[in-house]
């Protein structure tokens, strides 16, 4: 399979579903890209666990203020209307249902909405950060990910084999091949790359893709 979206294109697609004024947490790393692709005229307010609402892009090199960082410990700037708060308030925003969307990366997502994204097993130093908190509380928990692992194994599976981050928490998955919702313990296909047959998509997926209603073409600009 040669046709697939780049990480930037997956991030672009995820950004199209964020409404104006939404409060959004983007996981560190790949999900941070989503902020770059907000549609014109819409402005989301980004939350970072370490205590900022409404932060913006990184400053120029040499202009960093190391008291002004995001959860990935990257220097950021503030937008007009930003606010600071301590960690307990920050996670009250998370668990208390105040965020509209959290967008996270994944090692595996299961058809029952389980997510594994913090540990690849017992080796090395375990680190969880805010991932287990973020999967609870936001109104939508979306995952952005390649459809398969680097060695070609499906990341959308019947049941996760890696240690879980959260149970039954994911509501939508944006992959390099498709957009899939999790509804009633099933993967429901919403969009797929037009060049890709349903059979080929199913073959790259580790659980049944249910077609219930129209499947739109997943069309993303060159980026």
């Amino acid at each position: 399979m040669t046709v697939k979206l780049s990480n930037d294109q997956i991030a672009w697609r995820a950004a199209q579903d964020i409404t104006d004024g939404a409060y959004v947490n983007l996981g560190i790393g790949f999900p941070e890209k989503v902020a770059q692709y907000q549609p014109p005229g819409r402005q989301a307010i980004f939350h970072t666990e370490n205590g900022i609402l409404d932060f913006g892009e990184s400053p120029a090199k040499g202009e960093e203020d190391w008291d002004l960082i995001n959860a990935g410990k990257r220097a950021v700037t503030l937008k007009p209307g930003a606010s600071f708060f301590h960690h307990a308030d920050s996670f009250a925003m998370v668990r208390g249902g105040h965020l509209d969307v959290a967008i996270l990366g994944a090692y595996e997502v299961a058809e029952n909405g389980d997510l594994a994204n913090w540990s690849t097993g017992p080796k090395g130093v375990p680190a969880v950060g805010g991932a287990m908190d973020l999967v609870h509380g936001a109104k939508r928990i979306a995952v952005i990910t390649d459809h398969v692992t680097k060695d070609g194994r499906p990341k959308l599976v019947e049941r996760c084999s890696l240690p879980l981050t959260g149970v039954g928490c994911v509501t939508r998955v944006y992959t390099s091949l498709a957009v899939v919702d999790i509804e009633g313990g099933r993967f429901v296909l919403k969009e797929k790359l037009p060049a890709l047959s349903l059979e080929d998509l199913q073959a790259a997926t580790g659980a049944t893709l249910v077609v219930a209603g129209p499947v739109a073409d997943l069309i993303v600009p060159e980026l």
């Binding site: 301590h86 960690h87 307990a88 920050s90 998370v94 287990m132 908190d133």
Partner: peptide, 18 residues
């Protein structure tokens, strides 16, 4: 940690704060 010379109690960040 890998040499077993320090203990680690891993706590989710929001749980740690709370």
């Amino acid at each position: 940690y890998l040499a077993g010379r320090i203990e680690l109690e891993l706590v989710p960040q929001g749980t740690l704060a709370e």
